[in-house]
């Protein structure tokens, strides 16, 4: 189990796969894994595994 924005999810894979699984577009998010920012270029190589805590901020337009 991993925790995404405080919710437990049964998932293992890369950050890219997690974003696909959640239906979030890569271009509109910021992802933190265990309190460290994950650079966009690393999404494809960064694995998420049991016990990891993620915060995914999704940006919507308007300002």
């Amino acid at each position: 189990m991993i925790t995404v924005n405080g919710e437990k999810i049964d998932f293992s894979g890369t950050v890219t796969e997690l974003l696909e699984f959640l239906g979030y577009g890569e271009k509109r998010v910021a992802v933190e894994l265990n309190e460290n920012i994950v650079p966009k270029a690393e999404y494809v190589n960064t694995s998420v595994s049991d016990g990891d805590k993620l915060e995914i901020v999704r940006f919507v337009g308007g300002g």
Partner: peptide, 20 residues
């Protein structure tokens, strides 16, 4: 304080990566 969602994400990611 941008309006475009992708520009918001670019700025946030750059600042978080370059100026933690």
């Amino acid at each position: 304080a941008f309006d475009d969602a992708e520009s918001k994400a670019v700025l946030a990611n750059c600042v978080l990566e370059k100026f933690p």
